[in-house]
Design a protein around this nucleic acid. Structure first.
Lengths: 133, 133
DNA sequence: ATCAACCATAGAGCATACTCTAATGTTGTA
DNA sequence: TACAACATTAGAGTATGCTCTATGGTTGAT
């Protein structure tokens, strides 16, 4: 009988391979994100035979967010900023709100540009349909 | 008195420096786009003393389009495809429509993702406002 | 004890999209 | 004719975001 409250898994969370499988992000890329400061694992002080990093569900959430944020065109730096408004004490409340408002503005801008591009492509399509080009 | 109908400018359009000033895109970047196949200048057969390239208003339009298309996240390759549905005989009508439809679908997808990200950032902002993180 | 499957770090390599430098030739105005 | 301001090509360098390789140690099932 194993006391789950003292199992390695319960205390330390998952290792990088499990995190990779859970998120669909490669081990290499996860390490790259860790080096870039977007996520961080913890080493268990009690275990001295290895220096393995352990990750929790917060990291899973962060990686899901990173994927989404990359899709909308945010850079690693920008994603780091947003994540730091989240769990981090790096910024004051005022700074956090400024960062988030800036991102909302840039998303609004992207929305506008994409709608305009849709119109342009649509007009181009009309020209093709009507043999005008 | 200069006969403008025979002036170099009228026949050949502008040189790269003027194109750069007109579009706000650097000479280097314009050359990069030309190497990438997005635009093309023409050399004047009649002038043998130099090998200068001449550009017309179509190129100005193309460069404006390239800037917009880059903003919405299209790659050079994708932009090339779109431009080739435009003035080019490289594709059949059917192929052109396929390319443009694909782009419309990807723009629709981007629109969706950005709207979702706006919601996420908005909720995050609420958390900051209410001191929940 | 062996061995596949994991873990770590350091650093090289790659694709994209520029951005710049070097070397050299041309044009047009003073 | 001098010279600043243009033009050309070839290729090197930079930033971003991965992606992979090398090397070596650890874990866990047989």
């Amino acid at each position: 009988m194993v006391d789950i409250y003292f199992s390695t898994h319960y205390i330390c969370g998952m290792l990088i391979n499990e995190l990779s499988k859970k998120t669909g992000i490669s081990v290499h890329t996860i390490r790259f994100y860790e080096k870039s400061g977007l996520i961080e694992g913890k080493q268990n002080e009690a275990i001295k035979s290895n220096n393995y990093f352990h990750y929790n569900e917060v990291t899973v959430d962060k990686l899901a967010f990173i994927s989404d944020a990359k899709s909308v065109g945010f850079t690693i730096k920008e994603i780091g900023q947003i994540i730091d408004t989240w769990y981090n004490k790096k910024y004051t409340k005022k700074q956090k709100l400024k960062i988030l408002d800036d991102k909302l503005i840039s998303l609004e801008q992207k929305l506008k540009e994409i709608k305009e591009m849709k119109k342009k492509i649509f007009l181009l399509k009309e020209d093709v349909v009507n043999n005008r080009c």
